[in-house]
Nucleic acid binder design. Structure first.
Lengths: 157, 157
DNA sequence: TTACAATAGTTAAAATTTCTAATGATTAGA
DNA sequence: TCTAATCATTAGAAATTTTAACTATTGTAA
C-alpha cells in the first residue's frame, strides 16, 4: 500500500462523512419531508433503481427483509411507492416511485442542493474545479448505476 | 448562483453519500464492533469532541435528550464512555471516551481505512492527488473542530 | 437575598421500529 | 415430478426512540 493511497483514503474517511452529516443536519432543519431517515434513504434507492426488488432495497439499506417489507408498507400507504408483483417471477416484487414519491425526493434533493451551493460559494473558482474533478474521479468507484432495463419490465398490481 | 458552484454541489451531493454508504456496508460486513450505528456515531462524536455534554451529542446525532441519555447508558455499561458531572456547572454532564472506547473507535476506523485504501489503489497517482487536494479544500467547511479546551476541564464522577 | 424562570439531565410509560421465527407462494434443478 | 431454493409476508418479541413529567442546578431581577 503506497503512501499517497493511504493519505487519500484517510482524507476521504475524515471529510466525506462530515459532509454527509452536515447534509443530514440541514435536511432535518428544513423538515423537507415527513419521512424517517430509513424511509428517505429507501425512497432515494428506489429512485435510482426503478423496478428493484424488496431484497435489493433491504440489502442496500442494511435491513432485514421483514423490516423492509413493513417500511415499504408505510411508503405505499403514503402514496410514495408502487409495489407490484413481477410478471417474470411472481415471487418477486418490483418497486417504483409514484409521481408524488419522485416529487418528494426531488424536492428534498433540491433543497439540499441549494444549501450545499451556498456552502461552496466562497470557494475559489479553481478549487471548485478541483472538487468537481475529484467527484468525477470517485463516481465510478462508488455510485451504483441505475438499472434502466428494470424500468421497462412489464408488471401488474 | 454561478454554474460551477452548482455543478460542484451537484457532484458532491451525488458522490459523497454514495461513498459513505459504501463505508457503512463495509463496516456492517466486517462486524467491527458490537455497536449499533447511532452508538458508533456517538462514540465518534465524543472522540472528536472530548468533554462534550449530553445535549451536544443529542443535537449532533439528531436524537432527543432522553434517547441520548439511554444510549449513553449503554456505552457507559459497556465501558466505552465516561460520564462525569461537570464541576463548572453541576447540571451538565461531560462525556469522554475510555481507553477501551477509543480503542474500539480506532479499530473500526483502521478497518475502514484499509478497505478504502484498497478501493482507491487502482487510481492513477495524479488522480489521487486531486482527490486528496479536494478533501483538503472541503475539510474546513465541513469538519467540526475538536474542542481541546473541554478536555482539560476538571470534573469528577 | 429571595423568588421565579431557564437550563441540563433523568425516569417512566407509550409508540415506533426492527428483528427472529414461522409460513405461503413460486421457481429452479435433479 | 419431487425436492430444494428463493422471495416475500405475517406474527410475536425485543430493542430503540419519543413524549411527558420530574429533579437538580444556575441565572436573573425585584
Amino acid at each position: 500500500m503506497n503512501t499517497s493511497t493511504q493519505a487519500c483514503a484517510r482524507a476521504l474517511l475524515e471529510v466525506a462523512p462530515a459532509i454527509v452529516q452536515a447534509m443530514r443536519v440541514q435536511m432535518r432543519a428544513q423538515r423537507l419531508h415527513e419521512l424517517s431517515v430509513p424511509q428517505f434513504r429507501t425512497l432515494a434507492f428506489i429512485g435510482r433503481h426503478p423496478g428493484c426488488s424488496l431484497s435489493d432495497a433491504a440489502e442496500f439499506i442494511g435491513m432485514t427483509l421483514p423490516s423492509m417489507s413493513i417500511l415499504i408498507n408505510g411508503l405505499v400507504e403514503e402514496g410514495f411507492v408502487l409495489r407490484q408483483t413481477s410478471l417474470l417471477d411472481r415471487r418477486r416484487v418490483t418497486l417504483n416511485l409514484t409521481e408524488a414519491g419522485a416529487g418528494v425526493y426531488a424536492h428534498a434533493l433540491e433543497g439540499t442542493l441549494a444549501w450545499l451551493s451556498r456552502q461552496l460559494e466562497p470557494l475559489a473558482e479553481a478549487d471548485k474545479q478541483i472538487v468537481l474533478r475529484a467527484m468525477e474521479i470517485l463516481r465510478p468507484y462508488f455510485v451504483t448505476n441505475v438499472d434502466a432495463a428494470a424500468v421497462a419490465e412489464v408488471s401488474h398490481a
